[in-house]
Amino acid sequence: MKIIVNAKPHEVSASDLQSALRELGFACSSVATALNGTFVARGQRAEVQLAEGDQLEVLAPMQGG
């Protein structure tokens, strides 16, 4: 299915968020996730099912003021 990851379309075969992150190459990263604008905690990722067109944000630590 096609989902939007950090504003770019991606094709994923995984159906849950945890597996999708692994598939997208974020397996060992320090990242936080939000799906369709709502924060998804690390512990909930395996239970969250993805749907066609979902918008996923994968954020990481960055320089800031």
Partner: peptide, 16 residues
């Protein structure tokens, strides 16, 4: 610090 979109190369993780 801030949060921004992680890139495929894991630059945010390295910064952290």
């Amino acid at each position: 610090v801030s949060l921004r979109r992680e890139t495929a190369d894991g630059s945010g993780t390295a910064f952290w």
